[in-house]
Design a protein around this nucleic acid. Structure first.
Length: 470
RNA sequence: GGCGAGAUAGCCAAGCGGUAAGGCAGGGGUCUGCAAAACCCCGAUCCCCGGUUCGAGUCCGGGUCUCGCCUCCA
């Protein structure tokens, strides 16, 4: 057996994982804010969370995975100059915030499904948990951690001395280059809103002890993780950008209510870069899964691409890198699917077991997917016969790349009946040309077929045709 | 200004003290009328300078460069 090691942001080192309750794992994943299409950068993050969940399950744990959908919040911008994304969406699409949220939630679910990301055990919506959030806010205020200003209820950071434990940031040092504080009523610049009072025109608002309003941006995760996973659970995941503010605030709120840091392990996925630089919604250099599909790539090629770097490393997205992933995935499938048609290979069992161990060691070493993938590649070249297909089937519980069923490099030859009449005619014409040794004409016709999307392979007598991938 | 990550073959990248995984691209070969596909073979001493060690991409110190976060963002 290989124990499972996971990197914990809280302690900054790899720790051997063991759950609070034997055999069971509770994990919470910070989900999307649904006001526009998710980017492939977002998707990398959810692929990471999915891998974590699958590796836990591969290790025999029963996993309860909870993910939030932020369908409220930040409707009115905090910064005077910042634009209000949800309002922009409302204006742009002539829909209500609820319709916008529904639309992009559906889009998100579709994208994750296309990436073979398993649906979390619980998907919870912020708007359906306003009560739970208010309970926490009230509790915090009663305990003296919150205070009221003219525009909302704020968390008093000075009452929580351990603030910053996750990111290692000292508040005093943060102030120098930080954004100019806009709200003079706050006692400390880093104090954050628990609840905001809503102006009349604000679309989404709910009653509270302080009048109509809406929740702050961090309270939903504290409230919902507590509701579904309890005061303390095993793992909390998110993107690295969540470390300094969102997760610090979440810990502060939760710990002040329950006395416990909500999760024991905090895990964060690094950013996806584009052409060596930052991808961000505000820079506009983002791609969606649909953009990749429009260029002819499979969604799963992106999933495979995500495996090329460790989750705590930057991964640089370029079209040629994706191209390389697409090709690699297809030929890996070709090897696996070919093996599935073969018989048992005497003596392969031992090797198969060794590869299985190497795989387990890789994934249990803080989810080292690049290494896990290379294990399968080595297995693919080890002459295992059917054993390779069995092995791949086992690894698929984590990879989920449709290795046994997805389109492969050596796609099966097409039958005449599957081809358009025009193509058949050209094929026959070319066959005659070849018999007549009219190579120039044969080559010309082959090129013509290629342009139509078909690859001809000449056999001793006759030919086979395959569809050119993409 | 503060915090952090990283620099490994053309590209994407593993490696965590014992003489550099894997993929893509490229080159050579078998096969083919030529191709395609498949299969076989081929490539780096690891940003620079010191140090520790029998031995260092791998640890320590100092540089140089790149990137991220500190502001909604995975």
């Amino acid at each position: 057996m290989h124990p499972l090691y996971l990197f914990n942001t809280l302690t900054r080192k790899k720790e051997e994982f063991s759950p609070l309750e034997p055999g069971k794992v509770g994990m919470y994943t910070c989900g999307p804010t649904v006001y526009q299409y998710a980017t492939i950068g977002n998707m990398r993050s959810y692929v990471f969370a999915d891998i974590l969940r699958r590796v836990l399950e591969y290790n025999g744990y029963s996993v309860k995975m909870v993910m939030n959908i932020t369908d409220v919040g930040h409707l009115v911008s905090d910064a005077d100059e910042g634009e209000d994304k949800m309002l922009v969406a409302v204006g742009r699409e002539k829909k209500t915030p609820w319709e916008i949220a529904k639309f992009y939630t559906d889009a998100f679910m579709r994208d994750t499904a296309r990436l073979n990301i398993l649906r979390p055990s619980v998907v919870c919506y912020a708007t359906e948990h306003i009560e739970e959030m208010l309970e926490m806010v009230v509790d915090l205020v009663e305990k003296g951690y919150g205070y009221e200003t003219s525009d909302g209820i704020y968390f008093d950071i000075s009452k929580f001395p351990s603030y910053g434990q996750l990111s290692g940031i000292k508040l005093e040092e943060q102030l120098a280059g930080a954004r100019v504080e806009q709200n003079p009523e706050k006692r400390h610049p880093a104090d954050f809103a628990l609840w905001k009072k809503a102006p009349k025109e604000h679309i989404m608002q709910w009653p509270s002890p302080w009048g109509m309003g809406y929740p702050g941006w961090h309270i939903e995760c504290s409230a919902m993780s507590r509701k579904y996973l309890g005061d303390q659970f095993d793992i909390h995941t998110g993107g690295v950008d969540h470390i300094p503010t969102h997760h610090e605030n979440e810990i502060a709120q939760s710990q002040c209510v329950t006395g416990k840091i909500p999760a024991r392990f905090w895990m964060h996925g690094e950013f996806l870069l584009v052409d060596g630089g930052k991808m961000s919604k505000s820079l506009g250099n983002t791609y969606t899964l649909d953009d990749l599909i429009a260029r002819g790539f499979e969604p799963l090629a992106f999933r495979y691409f995500c495996f090329s770097a460790h989750y705590r490393s930057h991964l640089n997205f370029t079209w040629s890198a994706l191209e390389s992933a697409q090709k690699g995935l297809r030929s890996l499938r070709a090897a696996v699917q070919k093996a599935a048609r073969e018989g048992e290979k005497p003596g392969a069992e031992e090797k198969v077991e060794a590869f299985r161990q190497a795989f387990l060691e890789a994934i249990n070493d803080d989810l080292n997917m690049p290494r896990a993938v290379s294990v399968l590649w080595e297995a693919a070249k080890a002459d295992l016969g059917r054993g390779l297909a069995d092995l791949a089937g086992d690894f698929e519980r984590v990879f989920a790349l449709d290795l046994l069923t997805g389109p492969a490099a050596d796609d099966r030859p097409l039958d005449i009946s599957e081809l358009p009449q025009e193509v058949v005619e050209i094929l026959e014409e070319r066959k005659l040309a070849r018999q007549a040794k009219d190579w120039a004409k044969a080559d010309l016709l082959r090129e013509k077929l290629r342009e139509m999307g078909y690859q001809v392979k000449d056999l001793k007598d006759g030919y086979e045709v395959t569809r050119i991938p993409r």
